[in-house]
């Protein structure tokens, strides 16, 4: 229970909505045991709760609930143009969880989904089966922590571990596990796998403190990434979204210096730079109700592909590239 101005919010996951079909899955069982005091509500279909009209995403973030459901095909989706494929062919993503524990002001999920509640698809084995079929005849590069932060949710559902176990030793298969969490400890026990890239989204403290609510501070993310490097994992650093803030040049330069004082640059697998950008429809939708942040208040331009980004985006990207190349060779930088 969290107290605010004259009312008390229920703890997150005070309620767990469970699809009838999901009741018999071991993952469901495990989650229900993990939250014995939550109110359980059986639902016919997860969309009856998740896709209701007029939901208030901001209010739901005050006390998000869990929804346990069974995913129907398709299990994998083609990676969109807006995302970096890091030179990989057959870039796909899997959404075995929808929504995130964190509450970042700039997050596209608040424009993508009608609800802030977190959906966990309990039939993870079906995702694995689909992957297995595909990699028998083609390469697959799969982002597994796509519309969520799987490592942050590891204490709720251990899907990061399951994916790492599944990917280890497989041919034709690479996964990226992207996170803002410092929860490396949850997967530290595994032997680093060739197929797995652990990717940390990093932002200057000025950005993290102001815009990445509930996410751990930069120092702890860096510490986690450093430990993963030392343990022999392929570690990717994702410098995105680059946000336009006052004195952004100074702040981002100092930030990169700080990052590479802690993490040995020569042991980084690769890195990417990504400006704050978003599909036009999502941007419009979010900026209508996010009157509590300046993220959507800067002048933006829309590309021919319908992507909104800063009017001076190219200049910002060039600046970041020039800064980053001081630490990493050009071939390891994607932008």
């Amino acid at each position: 229970m969290r107290r605010s101005e004259g009312y008390s919010l229920l703890n997150r996951f005070s309620h767990i909505y469970i699809e009838q079909k999901a009741l018999s899955y071991p993952v469901t069982d495990r989650i229900l045991k993990r939250f014995p005091r939550s109110v359980k509500v059986v639902v016919q279909h997860y969309k009856d709760v998740f896709n209701r009209t007029h939901q208030d995403f901001r209010r739901q973030k005050d006390s998000p609930k869990l929804i346990l459901a069974v995913k129907q095909e398709p299990f994998l989706y083609q990676g969109p143009e807006i995302c970096e494929d890091f030179g990989n062919k057959n870039f796909y993503y899997a959404s075995c969880v929808l929504n995130c524990l964190y509450d970042c002001d700039y997050c596209y999920l608040q424009g993508l989904y009608a609800s802030a509640n977190i959906v966990i698809f309990v039939n993870i084995e079906d995702f694995f089966e689909d992957v297995q079929k595909r990699i028998e005849y083609e390469n697959l590069y799969l982002c597994i922590s796509y519309d969520t932060d799987l490592l942050a949710l590891e204490g709720v559902v251990p899907y990061a571990s399951k994916w790492i176990e599944f990917a280890g030793g497989k041919q034709n298969f690479n996964i990226e596990l992207r996170t803002r969490s410092a929860n490396y400890g949850a997967v530290k026990r595994f032997t680093p796998a060739e197929q797995v890239v652990l990717a940390w989204s990093l932002s200057p403290n000025e950005v993290a403190r102001r815009y990445e609510k509930l996410a751990p501070p930069l120092e702890t993310r860096l510490k986690a990434a450093k430990t993963a490097v030392e343990d022999g994992w392929k570690v990717r650093l994702c410098f995105e979204p680059i946000l336009k803030i006052q004195n952004w040049q100074e702040i981002y330069s100092a930030f990169l210096k700080n990052v590479f004082e802690i993490i040995p640059a020569d042991r980084i697998f690769d890195a990417n730079i990504g400006l704050f950008r978003m599909n036009r429809e999502q941007f419009k939708r979010i900026s209508r109700f996010r009157t509590d942040t300046d993220v959507f208040a800067y002048s933006m331009v829309c590309s021919g592909e319908g992507i909104m980004s800063y009017a001076e985006g190219e200049r910002m990207k060039d600046f970041m590239h020039r800064q980053l190349i001081r630490y990493l060779p050009g071939e390891k930088i994607y932008s």
Binding site: M1, Y7, S8, L9, L10, S14, H15, Y17, V39, V41, V43, Q44, D48, V49, R52, Q55, D56, R59, Q60, D62, S63
Partner: peptide, 10 residues
């Protein structure tokens, strides 16, 4: 058909 309130408050 089913309908659900969002119960966010204690």
């Amino acid at each position: 058909r089913d309908y659900y309130s969002d119960i966010l408050l204690e």
